[in-house]
Design a protein around this nucleic acid. Structure first.
Lengths: 344, 344
DNA sequence: TTGAAAGCGGTACCAG
DNA sequence: CTGGTACCGCTTTCAA
């Protein structure tokens, strides 16, 4: 049963607690912040008063007064995307463990929203690669997943792509098509620019894995075997339409995103192809939907939840001025399921 | 390119702007808050100063000083659940439109987390039905989706269930199994209690729709035709295993959640059954995965995004002391796709 | 070990 | 129409 609002708890303040404990507000503050030099007895008295009153600090006031806070915020372009959800889930676990509050906000909304300003750190998930409004400089430390920042967490996309290609190649495929996520980029120009400037970009690195794997297997990379999507299922369908209608269509597809891969499988099925008998498909990410699909999707796993955890730990270390090194690139692994087989 | 942190913009204050504009801080404040009675010329001068300096209000200061804030927080048990994601997505759109900041937090973490205390309103998505810690009384208005609160947004679950059953019945099915979501409840006892006390509960209402539809079609409700899941795919699989292995298995399933329905379909397929030829399946919710599945899932649509929008509008109205009525129950609609057909 | 005073950056209220 | 004053709830600094 919902406890009917008591006459509005009337915002307890430090002073209220202090009075109740018979000490000065300052002492209460010290206790709360775990400062040294408070007699055990006094501390206990304050603790009791806090417990009895149910007092909780006002983060705004604390922040204003220049104190630290234990809030980390996550900025993500959209809430209902599985990729981000996984990372956030991981971060949430770590936050709870470290006793930080995690708040998630959609980026884009009111540029860098008010709340980010008062968080001890910011986790950017798939931030726009163009950079942000310089004016809205983030005040606190920022680490990013799949995007640029001072502390980018990176995953071995290139290695993952090679894993996928290796798998397909070993199975005996030679006509391997590729669906990239480059369309999701601001444009091909940006992608090319990123490549030139040596910037790593998830979509681009996967493409590189494809190209180089083909090359080292002695296969030519046919331009018509490469299509670009934007990580949505629909874009995967479009790309697959093109690929599978080619005069000599590929016998296998390496798709750099699970949702796109699913789209490709469905298109194949609509075209009367059996997966994996007539067409093998490997995805990328290992989102929950990959395991839930039929046939279950063979895919390259990124440890998204772990990355979320690592991001949070890094942020907290940064916030607390503890030494911390940027984690090395996260490894990817091939998860073999039912969508791949030797060409028939 | 990321703008390298300029030597810390050194937090501009209202005073800085005031000086630059040659007015008092108060006037700047008034301009910023769109107060009446500021001469156009003065206002413009202030506006210019703001633009030139790139000043932005400090939200904590504003809040502390008793000014309203434009923050709504969402409390949801888990971030990576499609149901909640959809609602949040809808709320996010409305928030942006109304110029509020939306922050999402996982409930459970540090009871009702610090930030909720200072938001203008709280949206609870699928809160635990047992109620909350009385001590952590939410200070602001709270509306809920799929759970209790002072302002619960409800959807016509009963009607939706009837829609689904009607569809199946019209197709000619008589042996219709049901998978409920009641297992997700604290227990059957709680569910029974809710039923007695007249409380509406999504899972329970759908069950009622099933029972009454069967009854009014002159069908007996066989106890073994009713299984309970917890809205996860795995639980749907378990329930379907039982149902489809019955001596005389149902020819149709009404499953009160899309993920569970998907699980049921997969079990059926593993058992050599064709969907919809040998088994029809109707889901509930119309999550994105319903449309993405093969066969695409016939399901009862809840307008989740709209509910998120409505929730936000209600919250904002409440926060701004505008009159507002609780929306009437949201309608559900049957989305016919590929998972249902007449029994063969 | 504890407390008093000052102020963080705004806003409310009321006087000019 | 504009500006002075008090104060939001907390932490900092420094004295007792």
């Amino acid at each position: 049963m919902l406890s009917k609002n008591v006459p509005a708890p009337a915002a307890l303040t430090l002073n209220d607690v202090a009075q109740r404990a018979g000490v000065s507000p300052m002492t209460v503050s010290n206790v709360i912040n775990g400062k040294q030099g408070v007699r055990a007895a006094t501390r206990q008295r304050v603790l009791d008063a806090i417990a009895e009153t149910g007092y909780r600090v006002n983060p705004m006031a604390r922040m204003l007064a220049g104190g630290r806070n234990r809030i980390i915020s996550v900025l993500t372009p959209q809430m209902n995307q599985p990729y981000a959800s996984e990372v956030v889930q991981g971060a949430a676990g770590a936050a709870q463990r470290l006793d930080y509050d995690l708040i998630v906000m959609m980026s884009g909304s009111s540029d860098f929203s008010v709340m980010t300003q008062l968080s001890a750190g910011v986790l950017l998930i798939q931030p726009p690669s163009e950079g942000y409004d310089p004016r809205s400089d983030l005040p606190s430390h920022v680490v990013s997943v799949d995007g640029p920042s001072d502390y980018p967490l990176i995953v071995d996309n290139y290695g993952g792509a090679c894993l996928a290609m290796q798998h397909l190649l070993v199975l005996g495929h030679t006509r391997i098509g590729f669906i990239s996520g480059l369309q999701a980029e601001p444009g091909v120009i940006a992608a090319a620019h990123a490549a030139q400037s040596g910037q790593r970009n998830d979509a681009h690195e996967r493409f590189r894995g494809y190209r180089e794997s083909m090359a080292s297997a002695g296969q030519r990379v046919l331009p018509e075997y490469v299509q670009h999507g934007d990580f949505t299922k629909a874009s995967g369908e479009r790309a697959a339409q093109v690929l599978l209608r080619l005069p000599t269509p590929p016998t296998a597809l390496f798709v750099s995103g699970d949702a796109m891969a699913l789209g490709a499988i469905h298109v194949a099925q609509d075209l009367g192809l059996q997966v994996p008998k007539d067409l093998s498909v490997v995805g990328f990410d290992d989102l929950p939907l990959a395991a839930a699909a039929r046939p279950a999707l063979t895919t390259v796993r990124q440890p998204l939840q772990q990355m979320g955890e690592a991001a949070l730990e890094l942020l907290v270390a940064l916030a607390e001025h503890r030494p911390m090194v940027l984690p090395t690139p996260f490894p990817t692994t091939l998860i073999q399921r039912e969508s791949t087989a030797s060409p028939s």
